[in-house]
Design a protein around this nucleic acid. Sequence first.
DNA 1: CGACACGTTGAAGATTCTCAATCCCAGTGG
DNA 2: CCACTGGGATTGAGAATCTTCAACGTGTCG
Lengths: 255, 255
Amino acid sequence: MDQPEDGRPNTRRASGYVPGPSFSRKLAHYANLTMRDEQLLDFLLDGQMLYVGAGQDMIREGVRPVFVKIVMEGWAARYKMLENGRRQIVGFLLPGDLCIPQAIMTMPLDHSIGAINDLHCAMVQPGQLDAVEQESIGIRRALAMDAQISLAIQREWTVNLGARAAPERIGCLICELYLRLKAVGMTQGTGYFCPLTQIELAEAAGVSAVHVNRVIKQMRREDLIRWRDQFIEIPDPFRLARACGFRPNYLQMSF
Amino acid sequence: MDQPEDGRPNTRRASGYVPGPSFSRKLAHYANLTMRDEQLLDFLLDGQMLYVGAGQDMIREGVRPVFVKIVMEGWAARYKMLENGRRQIVGFLLPGDLCIPQAIMTMPLDHSIGAINDLHCAMVQPGQLDAVEQESIGIRRALAMDAQISLAIQREWTVNLGARAAPERIGCLICELYLRLKAVGMTQGTGYFCPLTQIELAEAAGVSAVHVNRVIKQMRREDLIRWRDQFIEIPDPFRLARACGFRPNYLQMSF
DNA sequence: CGACACGTTGAAGATTCTCAATCCCAGTGG
DNA sequence: CCACTGGGATTGAGAATCTTCAACGTGTCG
């Protein structure tokens, strides 16, 4: 009864766990939120939690979700499987991201969501979210803007895959992740923890894993990025952005 | 003052022009709309119109739109220009499509919209749309679902460009357009009027125009499609869909 | 130790691109 | 009426990018 949509039983009351404020922190960039707005949002997430192990699916194509879900910790990927056996990742979900927004729940999902590393999600009843939106115009605005930015990101991925060569594609992805993580305070200097394997990066960039490996090798040689032990360091973000033609306007951000 | 966002003056009261019911027709697929709901929607579109000539931009990246706009006649394309000079089309806008939804108006546009052929759009004041949504839960639901399907289409384009080879890409695009046009009654048998040039199709499929030409040639040879004089005929939609791995679930439709 | 996942490298081959030329057709101006 | 123009479609040929297959290294974990 907790989450009939995927039948996974690993759900429990959040007792000891204190969720990070990624969600409210991100939304606060989009509209003026009062202290109370932020409290409302944080309180919303302080309920039932969902844990998904690395590599497991959180939800599968075809099911109709029941709860709104928000990433608290860990990364996930939206993806689709093709008849030809290929998997295409169509977006990454980072802490603070609405992985199951309310509006999506009106119909069967067109894609699946898988955990990249161990994933913690807050589960929210749609009614609760409605109530919070009722209370604050700031929250309504911020959520609407968040939804629009998600759409803009999806468009940018379309551009990335359609019009850029592999090195630029991969560079732009690395830049996007950097800025999105920075918005929720998850960068360290000009670097960030990145749990992606080269295989997953390949599935997102629409190239083979072998080719990703060669591109990364070249980017390392040019000192555009340093990547070891799941940590990506960008020595000079401007230089990387210039090299790969990255423009952050679609995120409503600048460097 | 009519549309400060793009300064185009070719706007006038719709006097003789009777808008097609594409918009209400499409929304009616998504939720149960009463006769009155459909009238409300059609009435909404019976106001100021915007005409954009073939090849002209309706609105450019960076501006903040003022009016909600809905395509009444003609096709348009959302696109982005890259530093490398390439243009990537990230979506087609067909009659009945919300090309400027309300939510997008909260921020500067991340992309431009250009008319493929001569384009007629209805302009709606955001307040009017709000009022209509207030009145009917059916309309609210249908609009929410429409927005979600737009997002699902964008995801599918991401998959298309990232994980399919050129022939499948182009085949899937042709299938998608067929179903979307069918939903608004704009097909004739198993064919439809298609104003796209091979160049535009190439910009949408993320391949060169020369390659599109060769792929089309091959598809003609296999009698998967017949395309002449801006009319695409699909002799056997199932066969085409099978050949290119097209699955219409993301449109919330079946053949 | 063995199994396994991931990263790395080489080499051959497929797909797709670019450049260049040609053709067709509609519109335009003389 | 006809030459001219321009956009789009078509074709050929060589080159670049990227894939696939295969092998091997490295580290982790049971």
